[in-house]
């Protein structure tokens, strides 16, 4: 066996989820290791945010993120694990303090909530004190 190109493309969690679901649903009988890894990976992905995403919502979201000058892996992280707070943006985007203004960070958060509305409610279950907490921007 020969490795032609060890990293020819990055895949989003959503794409992997769809592909594995297709394998699982196909009629062909799979045994052994493929069944194990498909089951375990699906289990992980189904708990993650990507189960409520669609190809269209991701494409639209990436398009809206264009003006912020983010690199590919940063955008990939924003889609795979959509942040809901400015703190999380700071983690995912290198030197975000220099590259983005506070206003832009808020814009990114709004874009993510707008395209992936399912990420918002999870944060609001318990005590929300003085923190900003945008009121269910629909």
């Amino acid at each position: 066996m020969e490795i032609v190109n060890s990293n020819s493309a990055s895949l989003s969690n959503y794409e992997v989820l769809k592909h594995l679901q297709k394998i699982k649903e196909s009629k062909i009988k799979h045994g052994g290791q493929l069944a194990t890894i498909t089951y375990e990976t699906l289990h992980y992905l189904e708990e993650a945010q990507c189960k409520n995403q669609t190809a269209e919502s991701i494409a639209a979201c990436i398009k809206d993120l264009e003006p912020f000058n983010l690199n590919k892996s940063e955008k990939l992280m924003l889609v795979n694990t959509p942040p809901t707070t400015a703190l999380e943006i700071q983690l995912m985007i290198e030197e975000s303090e220099d590259r983005l203004t506070e206003e832009q960070v808020q814009q990114i958060l709004n874009i993510l909530v707008q395209h992936f509305p399912h990420i918002a409610p999870a944060k609001q279950d318990d005590n929300q004190e003085e923190e900003e907490e945008e009121e269910n921007s629909d």
Partner: peptide, 30 residues
């Protein structure tokens, strides 16, 4: 997750000749 391009010489046993070649190869690679 990433995609990796690979190349392999896949050996299909005679007992699997009844399958379509593509399906047999997919099975072997997995």
């Amino acid at each position: 997750f990433i995609l990796t391009e690979m190349k392999n010489v896949t050996r299909i046993l005679p007992e699997n000749f009844n399958m379509k070649l593509n399906d047999a190869i997919v099975r072997e690679l997995n």
